Computed example of a mutant assay.
Amino acid sequence: MLKIDDLVGGYLNLPVLKEISFEVADGELVGLIGLNGAGKSTTINEIIGLLRPYQGKITIDGVSLSEDMEGYRRKIGFIPETPSLYEELTLREHLNTVMMAYDVDIVASQDYLMELLQIFRLEDKLDWFPTQFSKGMKQKVMIIAALIINPSLLIIDEPFLGLDPLAISDLTALLEKEKEKGTAILMSTHVLDSAEKMCDRFVILHHGQIRAQGNLDQLRQTFGDDKASLSDIYMALTKEEAAHD
């Protein structure tokens, strides 16, 4: 379970996030939604430890980064928007390195690893180097690397970029399995039609503050439109932005 309490954070002493609080329960998929510059990436960077909060607390399963840095970080599986692979390692070496870094039993995990490789049709690419991969293939490797460590919290930043429709379907099915396992999932995306179908709840950020949070019906109440789609709500935010400017 991810819990964020009164978080204030940002860059170079310029707070971007202004006392935000929300939770992602075990077995729940929460969508992090907002316009560009709303604070989504800052929130993710605070959670994974690339930034340190000025104020507030972030815990995963009751553990904070300051209390147990190694244990905290091992709880997180992160799929970034832009794939980042070790160019000098083959796919096999890359995945083995990830598993060793997270103390995952490589032998005991082989069946699950092969299952993931087969789902994304990479089982015959284990001796390939990243220079031989397309962007979509690199994104699939990042997904596998995040799942093979069996995280308590899975954070996904724009997961659908570069993926073909079949891979998107495969990822959607895998996220459902992760929820069934009890994994807490936080997903930031602009693919709102998919998010609307997949997410249990949403956190909408606007100017570094939580503009609304809840399921779709609760968001509709907040924005005063009982038939609004998530895309409609996003467009309402753009109008607020225009009025603010």
Rank of each mutant, 00 (worst) to 15 (best):
A101H: 08
L85F: 07
G31P: 03
L117A: 08
P15D: 09
A243H: 12
E180C: 05
I60G: 00
Q209H: 14
M99W: 06
H207R: 15
A167H: 04
D217P: 06
V104K: 06
V30K: 00
P151T: 04
D157G: 02
I20N: 01
I155G: 00
A145V: 05
I149D: 01
N150E: 13
L216K: 09
S21I: 05
L175T: 03
D225V: 06
A212E: 04
L230H: 05
D232Y: 09
S169I: 14
D111S: 15
K177W: 10
S231M: 15
V16K: 00
V16R: 00
A145M: 06
K18P: 02
D61V: 03
Y102Q: 09
W128H: 14
T183F: 02
E180A: 14
E19H: 14
A243G: 09
P130C: 08
D170A: 15
V104P: 03
L85R: 05
G34N: 05
D68Y: 04
G71E: 02
L65K: 08
S134P: 06
E70K: 13
T97V: 12
I204E: 01
T238M: 15
G182K: 05
M99Q: 04
I185R: 00
G9N: 03
T43N: 03
E158P: 07
P15V: 09
K181I: 04
Y234G: 09
G71W: 02
F129N: 09
R52P: 07
A243D: 14
R73G: 07
R201L: 12
I76T: 02
E23R: 12
E19D: 14
L91W: 02
K138P: 02
K40C: 03
D103Q: 10
L237G: 07
E87R: 13
N36V: 11
F202E: 08
L166K: 12
K75H: 02
Q110A: 15
V8R: 07
L14W: 08
T222Y: 12
V30D: 01
G62W: 05
L205H: 02
E178G: 01
E158N: 05
S194I: 15
K57E: 10
D61A: 14
Q213A: 09
N150F: 10
K239P: 07
E241C: 07
K227S: 12
D26W: 03
G27I: 04
L186N: 02
M142R: 01
F202D: 03
A236Q: 15
H206V: 11
T59I: 08
A25G: 15
V63Q: 06
K57R: 15
G208V: 06
F223D: 01
A25C: 13
L51A: 08
A145K: 01
Q139T: 04
I148W: 06
E87P: 06
M235T: 13
E115G: 08
E23V: 11
P83M: 06
S229F: 07
